[in-house]
Design a protein around this nucleic acid. Structure first.
Lengths: 199, 199
DNA sequence: CCTATCATGTAATCCGTTACATGATTAT
DNA sequence: ATAATCATGTAACGGATTACATGATAGG
């Protein structure tokens, strides 16, 4: 076991690194575009990894000896990346150290609400209704996808599949959006009441 | 109105910019440390703005003519920033364009769960329990603070105060953490059932 | 055949983080 | 007094975003 190496390497890796390593580890060799597709299906819904990132990260991993690259000579010159044993070690080591950092919940709409007192009540209302609409739409979207997932996922207890954990991730998304819809609905109601009282 | 200017300037501003501008607009002149304190109380709970950022952003705003700086000559040489009329215009313009970008929900723990199939069931369990603990702690923390806020906030309907919107922000945090606790609790239960079935 | 969208890649810029430093206050 | 923590600031590095660019594929 090259664990002594793995632990020092882990200091150099970001969440993006683990995303890529993890995907390479379980989906097999990928082009950056493959990575993009895998990401888009789940985590990508609420943790955006821009495509340029997924093109830049793998080479970094290659430098660290955690992946290898193979490049097409034909027209597209695709870059195909494969995880190395050291790469898998790094993922394992990462999973063995449960993250203690708390969630970054960056919602531009919420930031605007935070400054709602600086706006007129018209502006405020528009703002709130927009957020409500956004979160409702997202909720519908996630729920639809969650249903799809569940269709193909018939887990035998005690033997959870890849799809199972993917589905779980999505389900957190659903829960968040539900909470958000409730929240903004409450805000909208309050505002409406205020306007009625102001007449 | 210098709205034609304001709109072009808005393209150069980040959420951080609006955070600073907004705070300067409603709390009055601030040192970077003041900003830090204001942030820590609310949004800072789930959208971390490191202190170095809050020292770097204001000068940027000064360059753009959205704020002015005054510096102490005495021992501490504090930098005191004040928002300009153009700065206030920029905030207003921003609020008038409800953000359409969806929430970035960056949870390292969830990323780990996403790759749970790559770990042993022991590692998996540790992971889940850790997240559950984290979110429970956060929930307690937020709820406590939300109670404090509500103590000082006695809103007359139709006349919401600054504190009111601050409180709202926190309340979204509470909702998120509740959702997270539910979620991880569910995962923990499933895992426990699996382990029982595996014997 | 042409247009739109998908697929693929790179370079430059810049925001945000990490790291470093030190001056004041408070507590012990 | 002295340690510890709060308060304040800057510099450097690097990851992430924006912007640019073009090769394939499919639909009309």
């Amino acid at each position: 076991m090259s664990n002594s190496q793995a632990t020092s390497i882990n200091a150099l890796l970001t969440p993006t690194s683990y995303l890529v390593l993890g995907l390479l580890a379980r989906e097999g060799p990928c082009t950056p575009y493959d990575l993009k597709r895998h990401v888009a299906a789940t985590i990508g819904h609420f943790w955006s990894f821009r495509h340029a990132l997924l093109y830049k990260e793998p080479p970094r991993l290659v430098e660290l000896g955690l992946a290898t690259e193979e490049r097409e000579q034909a027209g597209r010159r695709r870059r195909l990346f494969t995880v190395t044993a050291a790469g898998i070690d790094a993922v394992r080591a990462w999973l063995e150290r449960p993250s203690r950092e708390s969630t970054e919940l960056r919602d531009p709409g919420l930031l605007q609400l935070f400054f709602a007192d600086l706006a007129s009540s018209d502006v405020r209302r528009a703002l709130v209704l927009e957020q409500l609409a956004i979160h409702r739409a997202k909720l519908v979207e996630y729920e639809a996808e969650a249903r799809l997932e569940r269709g193909s996922d018939r887990p035998l207890p005690g033997h959870r599949t890849v799809e199972h954990w993917r589905g779980q991730t999505l389900s957190m998304g659903v829960r968040y959006e539900r909470a958000a819809v409730d929240f903004w609905q409450g805000v909208a109601t309050t505002i409406a009441a205020d306007e009625a009282a102001a007449v």
